[in-house]
């Protein structure tokens, strides 16, 4: 293997890992704060791309990509709040919340997917890339769009981390995840932070949609595969934290790039699952989960 090949594998691994990390962090956020798995997360990805396209593309409003991204992220935040209020809040006091939330979020995902299909049609669309052209560095070439993802994704993840670690509100979000009753007794507005957690997760999913929309053709079901991948990443990384899934995302991204190069795309998914199952058998709390005694 030449140095260029290694570098190429590394870069494509980091591109994949960045996307997975952005997908997974929103899921993990909702999981840790509310204790539910949000099956509408994939539709947030899809809608992120479609909202941006509608505002940005010449066949829509034609206001350009920057406006599209701004609108999409804001709209997803609002949609996240709405989803929490409609799909989760009415059932918070129920013992079977986890199961009810599976049903309500799946129902919402189906509804939104069909609504997207009806209003936007099944014809594939493509979003403008974040940056045009190609970049070549150290003898390998990648699209400027992918290069932008590699730079922007860690910045976004770092901002999320800073928000969670360094701000009072972020601290309160983590507190809710660790002990809801103690959080209530400290005067933390738990219900409001649930909405915030959903809004943040939805916005991050929207960004993933925008990034994907510049790589692949968009379709109403484009969020499904990424969501499944994100779920796997979250479980693999250790569902009890935010940083576990982020690190796991990059591990899986790199692993996937190695597999694609060495055994081909056809066997890659199966190989990934084998590795993950093996890891979970040895570390049931996930690769980066349950590190403390």
């Amino acid at each position: 293997m030449t140095a260029e090949t290694v570098l190429y594998i590394l870069v494509s691994g980091v591109v994949l890992g960045s996307l997975y990390a952005l997908m997974a962090v929103g899921l993990a956020l909702v999981w840790t704060t509310l204790g539910i798995f949000n099956f509408a997360h994939g539709m947030f990805i899809t809608l992120g791309a479609y909202f941006a396209w509608t505002v940005a593309d010449g066949n829509g409003l034609g206001w350009g990509l920057a406006a599209g991204i701004a609108f999409s992220v804001a709209a997803l935040a609002a949609l996240g709040c709405l989803a929490e209020a409609v799909l989760v809040r009415p059932f918070l006091k129920r013992d079977n919340l986890v199961l009810v939330a599976v049903i309500t979020t799946l129902a919402a995902a189906t509804f939104l997917e069909n609504a997207t299909l009806l209003s936007r049609g099944g014809r594939s669309k493509q979003l403008a890339p974040l940056a045009e052209g190609n970049i070549s560095m150290f003898g390998i070439g990648l699209s400027a769009h992918e290069a932008a993802i590699v730079v922007i994704a860690p910045l976004i993840l770092y901002s999320v981390w800073l928000f969670l670690q360094r701000t009072r509100t972020g601290s309160a979000l983590r507190a809710i995840a660790q002990n809801q009753e103690a959080a209530l007794l400290a005067g933390i507005p738990v219900a409001r932070l649930y909405a915030l957690s959903f809004a943040l997760a939805a916005s991050l999913a929207g960004l993933v949609g925008i990034f994907l929309g510049g790589i692949k053709f968009m379709s109403p079901s484009m969020g499904t595969d990424p969501m499944v991948k994100a779920l796997v990443v979250v479980i693999f990384g250790g569902i009890a934290s935010i940083s576990g899934p982020i690190r796991a995302a990059y591990v899986i991204g790199l692993l996937e790039a190695v597999c694609i190069y060495s055994i081909g795309i056809y066997w890659t998914q199966a190989a990934l699952f084998v590795v993950m199952i093996a890891v979970l058998m040895i570390r049931p709390t996930g690769l980066f989960g349950g590190q403390r005694a």
Partner: peptide, 27 residues
């Protein structure tokens, strides 16, 4: 303000951070 029985608090936070969360209320 209630300090409940057997409070486990926030296991993955530092003592300082936990204390500061106690002052979350506007009051």
């Amino acid at each position: 303000i209630l300090v409940p029985q057997g409070n486990q608090l926030f296991p993955e936070m530092t003592v300082g951070e936990t204390l500061r969360l106690g002052a979350f209320a506007n009051a």
